[in-house]
């Protein structure tokens, strides 16, 4: 079954497991690895494979569902939604704008100027590559 072959979870990470799963599946959907109409593994099957509780996989799927990435089909499981690439790009752009606005707000409180913020941005960008 697609998707769960390369899902990796870290038990001792500070990030909740359901978030780790949701993030990885989201990436697979957005990069096209999981295509529209593809079924996600059953929540209990996935829980079995990853050795975690059923409620955790369920929560991960519910989060994906609330973001419009997948839809639950009664009795049949979760399926990947067709992703409107342009709308997604807009959505992500909005998230970037919000994050930057938050950063600017905090910068002003801390008394940082635009140049310092730009420097920090470049440093972080490089670190993330």
């Amino acid at each position: 079954m697609n998707g769960d072959d390369d899902l990796k979870i870290y038990q001792n990470s500070s990030e909740p497991i359901y978030k780790q799963i949701a993030t990885q599946l989201k990436e697979q959907i957005l990069t096209g690895k999981l295509k529209a109409g593809d079924p996600l593994p059953s929540i209990r099957g996935l829980a079995q494979d990853l050795k975690i509780s059923v409620i955790t996989t369920m929560k991960a799927y519910e989060e994906l569902s609330s973001e419009g990435l997948v839809t639950a089909s009664k009795g049949k499981g979760y399926f990947v939604n067709a992703q409107d690439q342009r709308m997604l790009a807009e959505q992500h752009m909005r998230q970037v704008e919000k994050a930057l606005s938050d950063a600017i707000y905090s910068a002003r409180i801390a008394g940082l100027g635009l140049d310092e913020v730009k420097q920090t941005l470049e440093m972080l960008w490089d670190m993330d590559e």
Partner: peptide, 14 residues
Amino acid sequence: LCDLFREYLSERDG
């Protein structure tokens, strides 16, 4: 035992 639990639940999904 935990594996058995998941197996049991998975067999008749839900």
